[in-house]
Design a protein around this nucleic acid. Structure first.
Lengths: 345, 345
DNA sequence: GTGAAAGCGCTAACAT
DNA sequence: ATGTTAGCGCTTTCAC
């Protein structure tokens, strides 16, 4: 690693391929070829060019390149809030994996109230080659419009019905069913569900899985509280609403809510977890394994989700566009002390 | 919001300004002018162009624009790990604020072992107008090289001595001194410090502030443990090392470590917080205010830090380059139950 | 106020 | 293997 070739002369304009060519007494295309993997150029010549580039601090302008190649090597990532610790982790992994295959990440933040839809024209202007939408949803109309442009879109952790968008997600319904089975097997009968942000596919699927399974087993849902969003505070609030009905087990739509709920049960209502009330979440965020929480949860297969996303993008950006597909990966139920007792405070 | 103008015809190539011009029977420069704020164009004409653009799904190609204007409107953000919850929050705010002044964020992730330095040439190739480095440090040699290109660099939450880089940071030394004063005032005398990642400026400054103040007050540091990194696990580990020396108060280099340490003290050593040992952190991450932790800490002025960063960038990217400066903003000591007792488990 | 023409820095035929 | 030429889609003089 040279660590010394940033690419511009002191204070001046960046040196261009033409200048470098002039200095070397070669044509400008020769410079270009030196940076192109499969170009026919004498190895000696390439070496000469690269060496001169180093001393003159020449760096190819990839923006200009993308104008002719029509490949920006940029993918847009759209995220709503990152207050759920699950998402920073995902973003980090995603960015890393994309970088490894030579793709850069243009990050867009969608304010809570706003629609993802309104960001897409901007992404388009920046010529991103694909868009990854995480912790946010897109209208199916807009999704169709986007894919009509020939650019792939991947929705992580959300699905949009028949919009032709590729989806990568944990099997939420399966996970929720496993939770239901697990709680029933442990003898719980006064089961409650705390929903997450309404109308998100994750919430719908998890609720459907949980309720569906209970129904199959002939157990009625004891109580339900509506979280307004996927946050600690919403979980906390929901737990307070739920407490009077005295559930013996509560499934929160995700971990950050579960953690909030647990705190509310313990510190506001003096309930013991799991003795008075068992708690289950979904995601397996770092806090879930902290001794203060020891939260039973369904672990999302983050690595596989990222891998699926990136390999889909990688393939469809080189080869012929792959058809959109649904990648539904099963999660793993992780049993911890929030349901099975143990060394709790 | 139209919600319907993504910018490309179905499956085909994006429509260009030239095509749009041809359709309208005007020159291509007219199209350009319609999108330029201070161009001389008849209002009627502009309206005509914009309307046609909408129906034909024309969107200017900002990448091509940047070639002529030499303004990419892209800033690079370089982050190391985001496992410290303080950083996702910062990233979110930063991206939002940059977007508001028309700047987009190209995100680069630096793997733990790797140097930021190696990423900069890539940033340069993407013609970013400025770089913001968070949760990571740059060598001062590389920093000088970068600024020599005439592009601003901002280091958030880190400083690099005399490298000509603008720095935005909390007053770590002051904060640490306040913590020392606070703990002494509460009668603690067996004080310990848990250091963060060695050689980071934050760690150096916080340690200096804390030790310095103790020395001034004639109190010797009772014990110290070396965290290897800013993580929950490192804090946990450090607490275990510290426990035998029986400190009556521990200042952890940041909150995520403090939370880890607290869990270790409580669940591994059975100590009560704050009765047996008082705990203080730094940052004020969300978990610090959760009832399980109720962590006394110094709140970083995140909003002001982001505002300072963005306004510096905004100014220096339009007007004449501003000189690099140090923005040191005082934090706020927040007293919670981890030092003053209260409703603890 | 609008059109014509010359680039921005690069890649990709097409020559040689 | 290298040089020449023609753009990529846009902004910006310079005419009129």
């Amino acid at each position: 690693m040279a660590g010394s070739d940033i690419g511009r002369q002191t204070g001046g304009k960046p040196v261009t391929a033409r200048e470098l060519a002039r200095q070397l007494g070669v044509s400008q295309s020769t410079i270009s070829r030196a940076y192109s993997q499969h170009a026919s150029i004498a190895p000696a010549m390439r070496a000469r060019v690269l060496e001169a580039a180093e001393t003159l601090r020449y760096q190819p302008n990839v923006i200009a390149r993308s104008l002719t190649t029509r490949r920006s090597n940029i993918v847009g990532i759209v995220m709503a809030t990152m207050t759920n610790p699950f998402y920073p982790e995902m973003l980090e992994q995603l960015t890393k994996a994309l970088q490894q295959i030579g793709l850069q990440t243009l990050l867009f933040h969608v304010p809570p109230g706003q629609e993802v839809d309104s960001e897409l024209p901007l992404l388009m202007q920046y010529q991103v080659e694909a868009v990854v939408i995480a912790s946010a949803t897109i209208s199916s109309a807009m999704a169709r419009e986007w894919t009509a442009t020939g650019r792939p879109a991947v929705l992580i952790n959300r699905t949009v019905p028949d919009a032709g968008v590729t989806t990568v997600s944990c099997d939420n319904e399966l996970g929720a069913r496993q939770i239901a089975d697990y709680l029933l097997a442990r003898g719980h009968r006064r089961l409650a569900y705390v929903s997450g942000k309404p109308d998100t596919s994750t919430n719908v699927e998890r609720e459907r899985g949980f309720r569906g399974r209970l129904q199959q087993q002939g157990v009625a849902l004891h109580a339900q509280a509506a979280g307004t969003e996927y946050s600690y505070a919403a979980g906390y609030q929901a737990a307070l609403e739920l407490a009077p009905s005295r559930p013996d087990a509560v499934f929160f739509a995700n971990d950050i809510m579960a953690v909030g709920g647990m705190d509310a049960f313990r510190y506001e209502r003096g309930l013991r977890v799991p003795d008075d009330v068992a708690i289950v979440g979904f995601d397996d965020i770092p806090m879930a394994s902290w001794p203060s929480y020891q939260l039973t949860t369904v672990q999302q297969p983050l690595e596989q989700m990222v891998a699926a996303t990136v390999s889909f993008l990688g393939e469809t950006l080189v080869g012929p566009p792959r058809d959109p597909c649904m990648h539904i990966i099963p999660g793993t139920l992780i049993e911890r002390a929030s349901t099975r007792g143990g060394a709790k405070p």
